[in-house]
Write a protein that binds this DNA or RNA. Sequence first.
DNA 1: ATAGAATTTCTGTTTGTACGGAAATTAAAG
DNA 2: CTTTAATTTCCGTACAAACAGAAATTCTAT
Lengths: 203, 203
Amino acid sequence: MVNPAVDFCPEMTFISVMTEIADMSSSSAKAQFILYWGDMGSQWGVNRSVAQIHALLFLSVSPLNAEDISDQLGIARSNVSNSLKELVGWKLIRRIPVPGDRREHFVAEVDVWEMATLIAQGRKEREIDPAMSAIDSCLRQAKDETGLDPVVLSRMQDMQDFLKTADHWSSQMLSVPKSKLNALMKMGDKVFSLIKLTGKKTD
Amino acid sequence: MVNPAVDFCPEMTFISVMTEIADMSSSSAKAQFILYWGDMGSQWGVNRSVAQIHALLFLSVSPLNAEDISDQLGIARSNVSNSLKELVGWKLIRRIPVPGDRREHFVAEVDVWEMATLIAQGRKEREIDPAMSAIDSCLRQAKDETGLDPVVLSRMQDMQDFLKTADHWSSQMLSVPKSKLNALMKMGDKVFSLIKLTGKKTD
DNA sequence: ATAGAATTTCTGTTTGTACGGAAATTAAAG
DNA sequence: CTTTAATTTCCGTACAAACAGAAATTCTAT
């Protein structure tokens, strides 16, 4: 049991979480943001601790060490340690040395466009690429399988085509220097209206 | 307990899954695809049953009813029922009446571009939109909060800006008729090279 | 080399989610 | 209105992920 008070008063869990976000008046905008972010993360497939730590570092002016984080969020040190490792793996945060302090300190990438790129890259590597090789392997097998319904084969191929195109497109996107991204987004509007005007839409 | 054999032989779980994909030679390309798809789904945040059922319907030539699915995948009827409901919610499958059969039958959207659009729409509604309103609420609070570090405020605003732009862009994208999507993707290449040539990149 | 501090790994517990089976509800046919 | 088939809701179990605390390891300074 994390907190003995919870034994006879379950609602305490919420309260203790709140008060554990220490040196922010507990319901400050910053604390709210961190809470929301953590919640969203878990909605999203990212675990809550990781998302909260990320939010905390994203809003932090100065580098934080593991203990700072553990204290401010009320999360166990070990947990913080693992979460930091994961965030470093995504390159969303990085270690930074603080003179005269031998503990490891961390700062977050604060450019939101850069963040988005990093997340997109990570998701591509962890989700799209494996999917593509899985489909490839299926199709390799399907092609020399006798008596396979041609519709099945063609659906699989459609899927492979789609993944290839999407993959290529996202690579292009990721290779655009972030200084140009805003320009691209703005140009997007023009391109879209152009496209929608050409020919007749079928749906 | 799902399967009594599992009690003394955990590996049986895998084996039983395999043999339960009944009338496809169990390691056929189709069965492989379904297995992969289910696995990917769970990697992805979608639960395995849902993903498997979707794959089965995607590769299916004719509409299937709940019992067909339950039998072919070896998943409990109740489970199939809930999963179907979820897939209908995403509009990835739809009910279709089969003359002379009072059971409900289902078919999947088979156009991969349409599928992608539906998924993107769903994710936007379930993940992006709530995030945006959460941030909005934080910022509303932050603005009339005295003594809030200006850096914190500006970081939150950056995030809000980003989400707004990305949201707008993706709306545009989703409103492109799918018949035009391929054209857009192809044009994409040109636009990207153009962008990368203009001016000097800063990273 | 050793003491002390910082970090990571390990282990048990807790929490949440997936899922099968039964019970309940709904819908159709006679 | 009753009977039977189809579907959904409910509930308990099983599985997996998150997490805290302790133990073990690594690192740094002396």
